[in-house]
């Protein structure tokens, strides 16, 4: 599966209720090897609502744009890959006890 197939997929919880769509994917860089590995998926209410870089708390200017984009992406959350039960062509399914993390970056 390639990344563009994962983006925009509907996300379902363990009982099959739709809780949002995949709006972005979070990667982490390994300090020693420099390799990137997938940390989790960002789930939003609407497919078009992305942060455009304002998920980083340090980025606050211009204030109006920052506030508007954060407001549009409100309700987004990060789910770690360990909490994802399956990724299939028709949707992403989460485990029963998945945890919602803040999508913000320091």
């Amino acid at each position: 599966m390639i990344l563009s197939e994962l983006l925009q997929l509907p996300v379902l919880d363990a009982v099959g209720t739709r809780i949002g769509v995949v709006t972005d994917v979070r990667f982490a860089l390994d300090h020693d090897s420099g390799d990137a590995h997938m940390l989790g998926v960002l789930i939003g209410r609407r497919s078009r609502a992305t942060f455009l870089g304002y998920e980083r708390k340090t980025e606050t200017a211009p204030a109006l744009i920052a506030r508007f984009l954060r407001w549009r992406a409100r309700g987004s959350f990060l789910v770690l890959l360990d909490d994802v039960r399956s990724i299939e062509p028709d949707g992403v399914r989460l485990r029963t006890d998945y945890r919602r993390y803040s999508p913000e970056l320091p």
Partner: peptide
């Protein structure tokens, strides 16, 4: 215009030369 305005404010790209 919008992407340029946003990136001109991004410290990761611009360091101390942000708008």
């Amino acid at each position: 215009y919008l992407p340029i305005l946003i990136v001109a404010n991004d410290r990761d790209y611009m360091g101390d030369k942000v708008n």
